[in-house]
Design a protein around this nucleic acid. Structure first.
Lengths: 374, 374
DNA sequence: CGCCCTTGTGAATCGACGC
DNA sequence: AGCGTCGATTCACAAGGGC
């Protein structure tokens, strides 16, 4: 990067820092609101658009009581074409304000998610996963006419196929008891003390559980990232963002929701430094070069290392490289060459003897990391 | 209906009965093949179209071994537009051959399901549920770059909003231990003895588990219904249809698949004569429904069960309910009724014979749980 | 026969970085 | 943009062999 470009970037960054409405809810239609934001200023978008629910008449429970369903005016669209146009409009604006390595989450049900998914693919977004929110306590199908609608679908997508999106693999694996996090997540629906109510009535018909946003933000954003929610509602995204040390921007048309959201987020407390830093450590374990172990004395130069079946034995050199007959290279590269394999994880492939036991050299790395913690 | 129309309908029904290629696999492109079928002759369609995976380079496991991916020519499309056109074509033909009160199932992944869902809505199909097949043993994400892709999505749709589709609510509730069947289903991927192999290699890259088709056909079709599968592959739909007493028609381009499917279905026995199938038990929720044992093949439909003193004998039905003379119900409900007791633990009450021994049906549950443990 | 260990494999849009 | 280098990654089963 030249001097001029660097100066420009700094200026743009400065301008952005000054102008971005962080911690604010923009009023009015979300497309109009997003137009007030500069290009490529947002790291992550979470969107919970109207579901285009096509409810016929009223819905009653078997005991005759009335189901307080979504009948709000904002959730009615005259046709699929109108809904599609609406979807293209807000997704296009999201695409503009999102950084090129940013990502998008959308949540929906079978009423709208197929249209949203197809349109975002058409716009160039690259789907990374679809994720299923399994509701532990869904509303039953009172009429016994279909399967209990027990899940909603989320789509996680990057700006394009080549984007370098953020994924906190380690944090997710830790959160899931050392197993890879799967694409099906189990959470209860939003209720109890978490559900905003006023005069005994729920403030918003489709308030999302905070646990859902917690996992979304923890998995695909970093501390300090700017998170935009174009359909802010009562501000679950903002509340969880604040808690996790992320910046946030909301868009919301209805002043009642804006007011409730601001009051809610005001009360929210950020997690303290230690809680956040612990997660950070889990998120991206510092990389350790094999050479650092040699340097640190955990593995002496001259140590013999070998694969599990003792087909090959190599010697550790002072610079952290291995030598085996006339071939030499890094722990990964030499393992790969010797096996003729397309790749090799040297940490798992090479073993050494310590106190009479055979251990993968990764054991030494774990010791090193343990010592480095404190 | 006037006299003339009635006569026409009868004639059409007669003609259909004579001409429909029941129990046959039509060769060639499925759109061409379906054109050979009359209008409105099919009760249920199950479709497993190409997913349009668009895979990049090779993928290796962390141990260096190679993943045998779907590289077949039938999964290649030049663009979303080409895939959409293909989808519109076959769905349009499905719509014609399907009865007005018939229904459609489609299965897919995030690569294609959003496009399929939007197009079928555009064509006038009315989505009844989206259903998630949660895989108990999915392939991990080896590179740690995303969430484990642990599910596929099914869409269940009727011909239109007002259609009187078939839904066997009672059967599903019984199958699920007296709880409404939810929209998330847990099954293992197809493997073991169920997976068709030739010379040690899988015959079809994407063979679906029979338990999945079992639930689809049991929930949304009746005995004697005509089930059409436009992407027949190795004939899971046909095999399960035959077992459950449904008629079937398949379409399949590749002669190798057709041959394998016919041989497989030939061996299949209709329900009441069926021996214990080789289907493996799935990983289960802690609570096991009796229906899951039937679905998983641990107890075959048609099995005789009886109380310890052999006062009553009942027959296991395909949905996991029991029938004894004219009374029927769940294992708990029927036991309670027959004894005139206030309640009954069906697991302890009912027994069956296995390898010459009399065991409570709870023994089968224990086996099931054992398989699901670890 | 049972137990333990090893090996194989499944619809997968599966690096990052520097030169 | 292409290429070489460094580096970091897996879960649930089934099947088969050894003892």
């Amino acid at each position: 990067m030249g001097v001029l470009e660097a100066a420009k970037t700094r200026a743009a960054a400065l301008e952005t820092a000054v102008e971005l409405p962080l911690g604010q809810i923009l009023s009015g239609d979300c497309v109009e609101a997003m137009r007030r934001l500069p290009d490529a200023c947002v790291d992550l978008v979470f969107a919970d658009p109207p579901y285009n629910l096509q409810l016929g008449g009223d819905l009653n429970r078997p005991d005759g009581s009335h189901v307080d369903a979504v009948t709000d005016e904002w959730d009615r669209f005259d046709s699929f074409a109108a809904y599609d146009q609406f979807t293209r409009d807000w997704l296009t604006e999201v695409r503009r304000v999102l950084k090129s390595d940013g990502a998008l989450w959308v949540i929906g049900s079978y009423h709208n998610i197929f249209r949203v998914g197809a349109i975002l693919q058409d716009l160039g977004f690259w789907i990374l996963n679809d994720v299923v929110w399994r509701k532990s306590n869904p509303m039953p199908n009172f009429r016994g006419t279909r399967f209990t609608n027990a899940h909603e679908t989320l789509i996680w997508a990057s700006q394009g196929e080549k984007s370098k999106y953020q994924f906190n693999y380690r944090a997710m694996k830790t959160l899931n008891d050392e197993l890879q996090m799967r694409s099906d997540w189990l959470f209860p629906i939003c209720g109890g003390g978490e559900r905003l109510k006023e005069g005994g009535h729920k403030v918003h018909p489709t308030q999302k559980p905070e646990a859902l946003l917690y996992r979304v933000l923890l998995s695909t954003s970093e501390r300090g990232d700017v998170v935009l929610d174009p359909f802010f509602g009562t501000g679950t995204t903002g509340a969880v963002a604040k808690r996790l040390g992320r910046e946030w921007i909301g868009c919301e048309r209805e002043s009642g929701y804006r007011k409730a959201a601001l009051a809610r987020i005001e009360k929210e407390l950020p997690l303290d430094e230690s809680a956040l830093s612990t997660m950070q450590a889990g998120r991206s374990a510092p990389k350790v070069a094999f050479g650092a172990l040699v340097e640190g004395g955990l593995i002496a130069p001259g140590t013999q290392v070998f694969d599990k079946k003792r087909r090959w034995t190599a010697t550790v050199r002072a610079d952290g490289s291995l030598i085996c007959d006339k071939q030499h290279g890094s722990i990964h590269g030499l393992g790969k060459e010797l096996q003729g394999a397309p790749s090799c994880n040297g940490w798992a492939f090479w073993h050494y003897e310590v106190e009479g036991e055979i251990k993968p050299i990764d054991a030494a790395r774990q010791l090193y990391l343990l010592a480095a913690e404190d």
